[in-house]
């Protein structure tokens, strides 16, 4: 319980200190909004088909960008050392960092969703599943952002590295093109990426689309990604600390 409370303090501080950092505003806020607006102005009616993908994309970019900021920025100024010096387990630090990034991602995503759905005439069919999908996805994306960021020193390096993963996901995870219609072997890659299950889960919650797999499977797989990415991030984080400190 004490460790959870300390993770909350880390997240609270990150939210207060980093929400207005320029790289976060450009990559975590502006880019997803630009995507949404571009699609809306191009075809206001057609945006309905891609709205689950755009919401998933907003969550991906906002969560991973915040994770990249909270890790690399603190490494650069030496503040990460303060956390390592505090009486905290490494997993608490990691959990706190992921929590702050997830909350940021969820806030941005909810604002975009609340703003967009009434305009295009969509509603959330399964609110509980919608929140569960976005929360699990937000945690998975934040951990992915941390996993990518622990190995680099500068914020711009973390953003560049993140884009190696994020941009292919835009095309591979069913955001714009349905996964089953992709040429072989691309669907295999798609099924290895968490955004695929976010988009599929959101399709269940926001449209009549039955998705490629049942909703409960999307949620289970996302939960699996959370555990997998937490384990991987923790292991790499510990390894990097041993190397760098």
């Amino acid at each position: 319980m004490e460790e959870i409370r300390k993770a909350y303090f880390i997240a609270k501080k990150d939210m207060g200190a980093y929400y207005l950092k320029p790289p976060l505003i450009s990559w975590g806020l502006m880019l997803p909004i630009v995507f949404v607006l571009a699609f809306y102005f191009r075809n206001p009616m057609g945006i309905k088909e891609v709205i689950p993908g755009l919401i998933g994309l907003t969550l991906l970019f906002s969560s991973t960008s915040m994770a990249a900021i909270v890790i690399t920025f603190e490494k650069r100024i030496g503040a990460l050392e303060r956390l390592l010096l505090a009486p905290l387990e490494i997993r608490t630090i990691l959990f706190g960092k992921a929590l702050g990034s997830t909350v940021f991602g969820l806030v941005i995503t909810l604002v975009v969703t609340i703003f967009l759905l009434p305009i295009i005439g969509l509603s959330i069919h399964h609110p509980f599943s919608f929140f569960l999908t976005t929360i699990l996805s937000g945690i998975a994306f934040s951990l992915l952002g941390i996993l990518i960021s622990v190995g680099v020193k500068e914020v711009f390096e973390a953003m560049t590295m993140s884009n190696f993963f994020r941009f292919p996901m835009i095309f591979l995870c069913g955001v714009f093109f349905p996964v089953p219609e992709m040429p072989y072997p691309l669907p295999i890659l798609s099924y290895l990426l968490p955004l695929t299950y976010t988009v599929d889960g959101l399709k269940h919650c926001l449209s009549e689309d039955k998705g490629i797999i049942p909703l409960h499977l999307d949620l289970l797989i996302l939960l699996g990604f959370v555990f997998l990415l937490f384990g991987l991030s923790l292991s790499i984080f510990k390894k990097r600390i041993r190397q760098e400190f």
């Binding site: 501080k13 207060g16 200190a17 980093y18 100024i77 030496g78 503040a79 050392e81 303060r82 010096l85």
Partner: peptide, 13 residues
């Protein structure tokens, strides 16, 4: 308590 050579508190706080 440790005071490192570089003062590394949080600039924004």
């Amino acid at each position: 308590g440790l005071v490192p050579e570089t003062s590394n508190l949080y600039g924004e706080l």
